[in-house]
Nucleic acid binder design. Sequence first.
DNA 1: CTGTTAGCGCATTCAC
DNA 2: GTGAATGCGCTAACAG
Lengths: 327, 327
Amino acid sequence: MRDVRAGLADVARRAGVSPATASRVLTGAGPASAASRSAVLAAAAELSYRAHPVARRLARGAGTRVVFAVRDARAGILRDPFVTRAAAAMASVLDAYDIGLSLRHVGLECGADLVELAADRGLAGLVLAGHDDALLGHLPAGLRGRTAAIGAGGADVDSAAGVGALLTHLYKTGRRRIALVAGPSWLAASAPPLAAYTALTRAAGLPPRVVRGDFTSDRGRAAARTVLRRWPDTDAIATVSDATALGVLQFLAEAGVRVPGDVAVTGFDDIPLAGALHPALSTATHPVEEIAAAAVRAALGEPAPVTLFPSRPVLRTTSCGGSASTA
Amino acid sequence: MRDVRAGLADVARRAGVSPATASRVLTGAGPASAASRSAVLAAAAELSYRAHPVARRLARGAGTRVVFAVRDARAGILRDPFVTRAAAAMASVLDAYDIGLSLRHVGLECGADLVELAADRGLAGLVLAGHDDALLGHLPAGLRGRTAAIGAGGADVDSAAGVGALLTHLYKTGRRRIALVAGPSWLAASAPPLAAYTALTRAAGLPPRVVRGDFTSDRGRAAARTVLRRWPDTDAIATVSDATALGVLQFLAEAGVRVPGDVAVTGFDDIPLAGALHPALSTATHPVEEIAAAAVRAALGEPAPVTLFPSRPVLRTTSCGGSASTA
DNA sequence: CTGTTAGCGCATTCAC
DNA sequence: GTGAATGCGCTAACAG
């Protein structure tokens, strides 16, 4: 019985070539004649050879894990639905690379953390979320070329289009006093949706009504309270995260405000349960799994086209029907 | 300027000892005199030495990643809130070990996948979820000692206690015709809650009303329909997952059934947004992060006490107030 | 196109 | 307690 796994040397011996040639064939890099190629492949198959990922990476000088660093004021951000979903998607993509994902929270001032990461010889790549504009420009040298960002400047969602489409929908269905619960001002990704909102309200001559949120439902709840106190005649509240929207919905329900009758609500993200809510949440969906995959590939140094991923509106109950004023 | 990172040899040289001694000190394993110990530690600090994780693991013959394999009929299970949250928690814990997490879906017949995993030299540990009783007994030899399970037989939640407490609460608040949407029958973890349900209904002389769910909200919705069609006088529906409960709530809302007035509903898991729903979902909470950490440690071979993690009821709106019959 | 020679950076036998 | 050798398994230069 075979007690130890076959190594590259075994494969080479069986194929009648040198380990170097076997390595070239198996890695796909470097020249190799058709003859030795097939011989090596056959030998590898017969021995059911599986390369040793750790040895391979050591020899290549590459790391074995990708770190997903999420920048935020709160450590609890690691339990955010978007973060966990993106992390899971990355871990899923990395499986095919024989690489794993580490998840880490970093504070708003994370310069030291990045320096620390740059010194990690086991790091294959870094994916950064929650960055602002400055951060990406001041990356430690050791991180350049193996860092990818999620959000503005990296694998990004066309949030302006997504939120814009939702806002347009609200407008077309008769809403005229639309408030926006925007993202935190320190976050680069907060800008596009706000810009879309500003453009629309300005073009349509609607009153601007903006408050800041932070992707938690608690803040969403507070934001809804603020909105209704400050502008009691508001007939729609758009948000930039489903969690925020849930908080908004909760406040409205408790305040006896009908949705969508009195006030329409929209989210952003299309969390798995958005459609299972009652009333079902109108939101914008985007391919989180694809985005995560793109970020991971970019972090691993693969050429990644800086495309903007689509954000498509999903119109469900919370934004349907006309506003109170048209009812 | 220092252009290359210090290696073990550099530290040894600076401390005036051999690399072997330096290694012993830095790894904590093996003997070392107090003198050389402090010398090595000082040298390491001065050079800000960071061991090369990959080289270390290669030399030790250890792997560099933990695979989280989720067994289910559907590949979409990787987007399940519990799975993503657990995966994120594991990836977070593993960060401290310089190890990463890979996530993978395996079908119900996953024997071949496990054999494949056992042959992976880069595997540091395996965490298995969604197993049945037989699976853990027939693990490939190469996986023994580095495999941990989440659910029955591993890092498990005391779901019987959690669901039992919710059921008791329903009973004490006047519900007498309580239905249960149980988990799939092929899943080991489905048994304890069902046993708790059976025990309670039998002891209280309540009619047993059980249908099977699968942790999706769609099935929860269908299950609610089935329950109300089969037993129209049902006054409470308990479930074993929040996603299922959301589906139940959705159906009830569409059917015009008041919650909790006509029918009380309970979930299980306490997903982050459970409290932000309206009506807020009564459910049972358990320390997912701790469970994930325990599973990871067990998978890495650390001695892990086979404790049952607590499941504590969180009573919110959907289970409050008396039933229709008492109203 | 191929084989030979060196490492990758560290942990671990063994003798001393 | 310590050091010198040896190996982890593979890839990358180089000469042929």
